Amino acid sequence: MQSVNLLDCLLSVDRFFLTTNFVFNSIRKSINSDTFAKLAQNKNLEIFSIEQMDPFWEFYLSLQGSLSIEECSVLFSAQKMQAVLLSSDKNLIGFAKKNGVNSFSLLAVLKCMEKRNLLSPNEVATKWSVLMNKNKNLYKEECRKKIIQ
């Protein structure tokens, strides 16, 4: 994410974002300190702490290891708060849809940003190509087809 500044792109959109402390702490390990500092200071981001919620642990155990704790925390939060889930993980999006959570892939978000002239087609293709090479969970074939369009 740090090399394509996708996080910066998403946070520049005038919307409120919610994440969980599990995801926030995981992000801290994977992005550069400048981007993390911007993320931590973003007024449109709320970090939701759920590790002490019994219903979360019940939900996590019910999935029998199908999702990581970070993925499960995001899905649980989106479901409880009736929020839209954004992810580049096809497995998580599949679980979100099965659980009635409105969800979008990051490719769909980038394509929407392109349609609204927030990003050029070349910027979308470049950002997504770099991200595809780094993330094994992306819809690779779907992405290649849409990037070429």
Rank of each mutant, 00 (worst) to 15 (best):
M1A: 10
Q2W: 05
Q2P: 00
S3Y: 09
S3E: 11
S3Q: 09
V4R: 08
V4A: 14
V4I: 03
N5V: 00
D8Y: 07
C9T: 03
C9V: 07
L11T: 13
S12Q: 15
S12W: 11
V13D: 06
V13G: 00
R15A: 13
F17W: 14
F17P: 02
L18N: 06
L18W: 12
T19A: 03
T20H: 11
N21D: 15
S26D: 15
S26G: 09
I27W: 13
R28Y: 09
I31P: 08
I31D: 09
N32W: 03
N32G: 12
S33V: 13
F36E: 09
K38P: 02
K38D: 13
L39Q: 07
L39T: 14
A40Q: 14
A40N: 13
N42M: 07
K43N: 14
N44K: 15
L45F: 03
E46H: 10
I47K: 06
F48W: 10
F48S: 06
S49V: 07
I50V: 14
E51F: 12
E51Y: 12
E51Q: 12
Q52P: 00
M53H: 10
M53C: 03
D54A: 14
D54H: 10
P55L: 11
F56W: 12
E58D: 12
E58Y: 08
F59G: 03
F59Y: 15
Y60A: 02
L61E: 13
S62F: 06
L63V: 05
Q64N: 15
L67N: 05
E71I: 06
C72W: 04
S73H: 05
S73N: 04
V74Y: 01
L75Q: 04
F76N: 04
F76D: 04
F76P: 03
Q79E: 04
M81L: 13
M81E: 08
M81A: 08
M81V: 00
Q82I: 01
A83Y: 08
A83R: 09
L85H: 05
L86A: 03
S87G: 06
S87K: 04
D89Q: 09
K90D: 10
K90G: 06
N91S: 11
I93K: 14
I93W: 09
G94H: 10
K98D: 15
K98C: 11
N99T: 00
G100I: 04
G100T: 03
G100M: 04
V101E: 05
N102V: 09
N102H: 11
S103D: 01
F104D: 02
F104I: 01
L107K: 10
V109L: 15
V109R: 04
V109Y: 06
V109D: 02
K111D: 11
M113N: 02
M113S: 01
E114D: 11
K115N: 13
R116Q: 11
N117H: 11
L118V: 01
L118P: 00
N122F: 07
E123Y: 02
V124I: 10
A125C: 07
K127G: 00
K127S: 05
S129I: 00
V130M: 09
K134R: 07
K134G: 00
K134W: 01
N135M: 02
K136Y: 02
K136V: 01
L138Y: 04
K140A: 02
E141S: 08
C143P: 00
R144P: 00
K145T: 07
I147G: 01
